[in-house]
Simulated assay, not measured.
Amino acid sequence: MVATNVKAETSSLMEKRSWLEAEMNTIIARLSQPGAPGLSGNLLDSEGFPRSDIDVPIVRAERRRLAELRNDYTDITEKINQNIQILHSARLGNNNRSSPFKNSDNDDGSDIQTSSTVETVASTPSQNVLLSLSPNSMDVDVLVSRPFAVVDEIADASPAVEDGLQLGDQILKFGNVEAGDNLIQRLASEAQSSMGQTVPVVIMRQGTVINLTITPRTWQGRGLLGCHFRIL
């Protein structure tokens, strides 16, 4: 019963997290469109007055809302990770309590115990968590991901655009970079060291995890990708 309740709560949390992602992406797209101030651009002109080409109160309100959504996203992701650990522990407990039975196909009559496949990849909140259990146990197949950066600027005809990256995409993994400190420097180093070579990139777009391959390369614009990552 506990596992069933936790599963239901986790499913609800993941749905809510998808809504948060969709709203965040919408706000990011509005703030990052041509002529907009971006996620952190100056709202004052060169003389220190509010810019006349944008609606400053609305921009400030959207930035505040985006900060609130990010905090909620972090809290929900941590709760999802906690629930997955509960489900994992409960599954292991059930395996330990289950009674072994004799396999009629085993010629030596030895007792064996059935088990379900459990695959866990990176259980810390800052990384991806993949937990798969067979239908005979808890029927759970959950992917939990926490983006560490978002594409807040991207140039037309850039390598990033040509290879499939879009404004508002949230970065889960860029080559060997997933999380940690000095992310901007590590992303730049990863792109430079992979110039002319394909880099596997995992993104989240509108709540969907997508795998891309991007090739950092020189082009008519600045940088090797033609986009800017904002660390979350």
Rank of each mutant, 00 (worst) to 15 (best):
L92G: 04
I84R: 06
I86F: 10
V140F: 00
S46M: 11
S104V: 14
Q33P: 00
I112R: 13
D75P: 00
P135G: 01
N136E: 14
V118R: 11
A61K: 10
F101M: 14
R60C: 04
Q82N: 13
D55M: 04
P135L: 03
S110E: 11
A67K: 05
P125D: 01
L39K: 03
D108F: 08
R65C: 04
T77M: 09
S132Q: 14
I80H: 01
S134V: 09
L44E: 09
S99A: 14
S46G: 13
N83E: 06
P57R: 04
I80L: 05
N71G: 08
M138Y: 13
I54H: 01
H88R: 14
L69K: 03
G35T: 05
N83I: 06
N136G: 07
R97L: 15
G93C: 10
S98G: 07
L133R: 05
P135V: 02
T124Q: 13
A36M: 11
S126M: 12
P57M: 05
R97I: 14
A61M: 12
D141C: 07
T117M: 13
N42V: 13
R70V: 07
V56S: 04
A90P: 01
S145G: 07
Q82W: 02
D108S: 07
G109P: 01
A36W: 00
V140M: 10
S40D: 15
L44F: 03
T74F: 03
V144K: 06
T120R: 11
V142T: 11
V144L: 08
P50E: 08
V142L: 09
N136C: 08
D139M: 06
D75Q: 09
L87S: 09
P57D: 04
E68H: 02
S110F: 07
S123Q: 14
S40R: 10
E119H: 12
P34V: 04
D111T: 10
I58P: 00
Q85D: 12
R70G: 07
V59N: 03
D53E: 06
Q113K: 15
S145M: 05
I86Q: 15
D75R: 01
S126L: 10
L92N: 09
P34R: 04
S52A: 13
G41T: 12
D72P: 00
N83K: 01
G109Q: 04
I86H: 11
N128R: 13
E62M: 05
E47A: 11
N96L: 14
E119L: 15
Q113S: 14
L66N: 02
N136W: 02
S132A: 13
I84P: 00
N71A: 10
S98V: 07
D53L: 08
N103G: 02
A36I: 08
A90M: 15
F49D: 15
S116K: 04
G38L: 06
F101V: 15
D45N: 13
D141M: 11
R60T: 09
D53K: 03
S89Y: 03
S52Q: 12
L43H: 04
N71C: 05
L133E: 15
R63V: 03
E68I: 01
R70N: 06
D107Y: 07
E47R: 13
S115D: 13
D108Y: 05
G93R: 11
S110K: 13
N94M: 13
E78I: 02
N103D: 15
E47F: 05
